[in-house]
């Protein structure tokens, strides 16, 4: 809570039995981030309930219910397979697996960001009723899309029944890549959710940005192919090199399709680079949070 006028001594006069619930003095950036992280830990149950509710929403009112969690990515794969594999005739050996290894994580990224962007705005009623750490809203959106990503792994691994030679023990390294992707999803999710409260345009921009990102990431084509295509255009090539999702998708494909070690050095750099963004996004969110209710 922000307090003007430097009237801090109030906080020290707490009645012995009761703790100060409203009116804590504002802290510096590090204190703010630490306090926010603590509040997330304290409300981990809220995070869990919100996530469950959100996952259920997707399957909610339908006959097939939660089976859609598996069906949805499978249908998407079929469409892209038809589009790129059959219509554009760009055959890669074992093309469905090649495609799915990158499309599934990209789908996760898209779902996480688009639902997180709307998450704060969509909870305006409860925010006007109860004071709670609103940062759990974008976090639960990310957690829900992560759950549906895990369900998407079922059709992905089913593909190994068709292409058993492609299955190697490198698959076991998948959690590392998934972890790096979470690290990069969080700061964007937190930042967009806060900004979208003030600028409705953010959600449209995110939608179009993600569509563009899909084509400049190695989702439909191989990393090498895009690198080759962009080589004559240095600025575009730089954009590809700076795109963390390009490295992450490439790592998925290495593990799941090529059956070889990923570029762990690059992934480590990508992972470390996410940390300042995460801290910045948390700080930004916390500073903007007191104004959310005033704007909504």
């Amino acid at each position: 809570m922000s307090i003007g006028g430097g009237c801090y001594p109030l906080a020290t006069m707490a009645t012995a039995s009761l703790r100060l619930t409203v009116g804590r003095p504002r802290r510096g950036p590090i204190g703010t981030i630490a306090e926010t992280l603590r509040s997330i830990y304290q409300r981990r149950r809220l995070l869990m309930y919100l996530t469950v509710a959100r996952v259920r929403q997707d399957g909610g009112n339908s006959i097939l219910g939660n089976f859609w969690l598996i069906l949805d990515p499978a249908i998407q794969l079929a469409i892209y397979y038809f589009l790129v594999g059959v219509v554009l005739n760009r055959p890669q050996a074992n093309f469905p697996l090649f495609l799915f290894a990158a499309i599934l994580p990209w789908r996760w990224f898209t779902m996480a960001l688009s639902s997180a962007t709307e998450s704060v705005r969509g909870h305006d009623k409860v925010m006007r009723q109860i004071a709670f750490p609103q940062i759990v809203l974008p976090l639960s959106a990310v957690a829900a899309s992560t759950t549906s990503f895990f369900f998407g792994l079922i059709p992905l691994f089913s593909l190994y029944l068709v292409y058993p030679d492609r299955l190697t023990s490198w698959v076991l390294a998948l959690p590392l890549v998934i972890g790096v992707q979470v690290l990069w999803t969080l700061p964007f999710a937190i930042m967009f959710s806060a900004l979208n409260v003030f600028l409705r345009d953010i959600s449209s921009l995110v939608r179009h940005g993600l569509r563009l990102g899909f084509y400049v990431s190695p989702a439909l084509f191989s990393f090498e192919k895009i690198q080759g295509l962009l080589a004559p255009y240095p600025p575009a090539h730089l954009l590809l090199d700076l795109n963390p999702m390009a490295w992450i998708l490439n790592a998925y494909r290495d593990l799941l399709y090529e059956g070889r070690s990923a570029d762990w050095g690059a992934l480590l750099v990508v992972a470390l680079a996410s940390i300042p963004f995460s801290l910045l996004s948390i700080y930004l969110f916390r500073r903007l949070a007191p104004s959310f209710v005033k704007v909504l």
């Binding site: 409203v22 009116g23 109860i130």
Partner: peptide
């Protein structure tokens, strides 16, 4: 504690 004061203090 849903709105924070823009001036003054609250406890």
């Amino acid at each position: 504690g849903i709105l924070a004061p823009d001036e003054g203090s609250i406890a």
